[in-house]
Design a binder for these strands. Sequence first.
DNA 1: CACTTTGTTTGCATAATGCAAATCATGCCC
DNA 2: GGGCATGATTTGCATTATGCAAACAAAGTG
Lengths: 177, 177
Amino acid sequence: MSPRTADDKMSGESSTTADRARAAAGDRVIDAVLTASRLLVAVSARSLNEVEDSLTLPQFRALVVLASRGPLRLTHLAEHLAVNPSTAMRMAERLASAGMIDRSPNPENRRESIATLTEAGREVVEQVTTRRRDEITAIVERMPADHLDRLVEALESFSAAGGEPSAGYDPIPLGWQ
Amino acid sequence: MSPRTADDKMSGESSTTADRARAAAGDRVIDAVLTASRLLVAVSARSLNEVEDSLTLPQFRALVVLASRGPLRLTHLAEHLAVNPSTAMRMAERLASAGMIDRSPNPENRRESIATLTEAGREVVEQVTTRRRDEITAIVERMPADHLDRLVEALESFSAAGGEPSAGYDPIPLGWQ
DNA sequence: CACTTTGTTTGCATAATGCAAATCATGCCC
DNA sequence: GGGCATGATTTGCATTATGCAAACAAAGTG
């Protein structure tokens, strides 16, 4: 928002140049990550469709969250998916009627109900994950080996700088809306 | 698709180990890129909301495509967004009634109608882009400088290996959904 | 028991999506 | 020139995803 401040007027051209340099770096990075993201998205979508084309991507994300975090209250599921509780609720209904999850009230606390992955749900997640991992592996195999470590290192550094908690095996960005 | 071929049976354990190594590499990469993607998605969504919270992310993606490719036929817009023509059509309607784009029939060829960014649309894209670039720049500034080049290099290598056409300034993956 | 807190569910409204069928404007071929 | 294949847009239909706000329900508190 404010690449040009009062300071700029003092330092003149050099500051402007530095700004431009950083901006260019930002553009390059954003381009690179965006492209890589697209690739990953494409891979994920393809993997999902090959295994189960009746599930939508948001639904699959929900399954993945349940697979990695274990049974969750609807509220927490909603939080992990970064959606409104009502959205999570209705998604849960659909997933339940598709046999992918179970939704039973917690006996301890009858006001909350817990979503659990069914065996079918677990299998879908596993198959899609395997499929996806295979595709990624195939891509990675085509990369120069020495780029691999750098890639991971650089990406982690980037994420750390952005304050994003490292994502064990969480969602799939797909949510990009 | 075929990490295990007939050859595997000949080389025995070593091949299994290699497979595991590659798979692990794949997992690390996917984790890293996924995390970075999430960060980028978050940044994009935030930037968009700060500038214009009445636009949805898909709509904004459409504007970005128009900004980078220039006026497009609806069919082509749909292709660039990787959605069905009917989806693009209705999105175009909404964007038009929001004053972000113009939709006029091509005088040359009246069967096609062309979507053009309006001044308002261009401004939104520019503001959001600036905002986003600033945020990315801020993150990049916190990275060790020597990681930057590697990051770009490694990511490009990854995308190239996956056969993803380098994305000048295209969409935002958000579509993961 | 009245009041608050917390989690779930419903109502209401809008967007995004895909598929298939209906139009519409061209271009081309007898 | 009339009829047909083609390509592009538009409509109809159905489903999902979303958010917000209000209604509910189960605990917990004073």
